[in-house]
């Protein structure tokens, strides 16, 4: 049942624009119900700030049910906070104890410049998808959906990878700011399906090349997968590496010759 969590010390990163240096600002939450979500706790704080005639803390959020991928936040050194397999919006105050200190920082990566306070720009992800994260299929010309059977295990594996919400926690958690889990997930989703075969290697090459312009490299720490709200497996990175190699070496005129 409902309990109160009291005397929380929040250290929130405030940064007035991309060029500002930024600093931690300390606020004390005297008490809040443990049913409140983490973002609702920030809502409460923001209303208080407005009451004090101060600017509200800027942070990205939208669906608040863990699927849109808009919310971010580094909470006590962990992307999306201490709860495994969930986004910040699905984190509740029952995960914290009285007198806890909670440090809140924005995602940090060269590819994710800070816009203001806790809000960052994750457009680099979109650039990667634009470069090849799709199956070319103009509206109207699609054959009957049941024409190509997809073995259930393949469909399931593609779905596992497709569950990615594009939140950027993998990049934020990675000690190298690498986006391999994000790119690997999209490639795995599309490259496993029969529909995705025609562009498979072109896609792998284009997306990896674009990723390279923005992000660091994978050193197999596994932090990305641990931070991933959808718990996407590191296997997707291996598949990406394999398809990228094939993209470079395969005779693409004779792709059917495996």
């Amino acid at each position: 049942m409902t309990h109160l969590v009291s005397n929380l010390t929040l250290k929130v990163w405030r940064q007035n624009g991309p060029a500002d240096k930024g600093k931690f600002e300390t606020h004390v939450i005297e008490s809040i119900t443990d049913e409140a979500s983490f973002l609702e706790m920030l809502d409460v704080l923001n209303e208080r700030l407005i009451g004090e005639n101060k600017e509200a803390i800027v942070f990205d959020h939208d669906c608040r049910e863990g699927i849109c991928g808009t919310c971010s936040l580094m909470i006590n050194g962990q992307a999306h906070g201490p709860q495994r397999g969930s986004t910040t919006c699905q984190l509740h105050m029952r995960s914290f104890k009285d007198d806890d200190t909670i440090v809140i920082e924005p995602w940090r990566a060269n590819a994710f410049p800070i816009i203001k306070d806790l809000m960052v720009d994750r457009a680099a992800f979109d650039r990667i998808v634009e470069s090849g994260g799709f199956i070319t299929s103009p509206t109207g010309g699609a054959p009957d959906a049941n024409l190509i059977p997809v073995p259930k295990p393949v469909a399931d594996a593609a779905m596992d990878a497709a569950a990615c919400i594009g939140c950027g926690a993998c990049v934020a958690a990675c000690p190298n700011s690498a986006a391999n889990l994000f790119v690997g997930a999209k490639l795995t989703h599309l490259n496993l399906l029969p529909q995705g075969q025609a562009e498979r290697y072109k896609r792998a090459e284009a997306m990896v090349d674009t990723m390279d312009e923005h992000f660091g490299s994978c050193t197999n720490h596994g932090e990305c997968s641990a931070a991933c709200p959808k718990e996407i497996s590191l296997d997707v990175i291996a598949l990406m590496n394999k398809d990228y190699r094939s993209a470079k070496f395969k005779n693409r005129k004779q792709l059917s010759r495996k």
């Binding site: 990163w13 990566a109 060269n110 490299s217 720490h221 596994g222 932090e223």
Partner: peptide
């Protein structure tokens, strides 16, 4: 790769990281 990775996060986290898998 180290150079690339350093460049990929020019401003480090200002609070302590809590690594899970690394």
């Amino acid at each position: 790769l180290t150079v690339l990775n350093r460049h990929a996060r020019p401003v480090r986290y200002q609070s302590a990281r809590d690594y899970q898998e690394a």
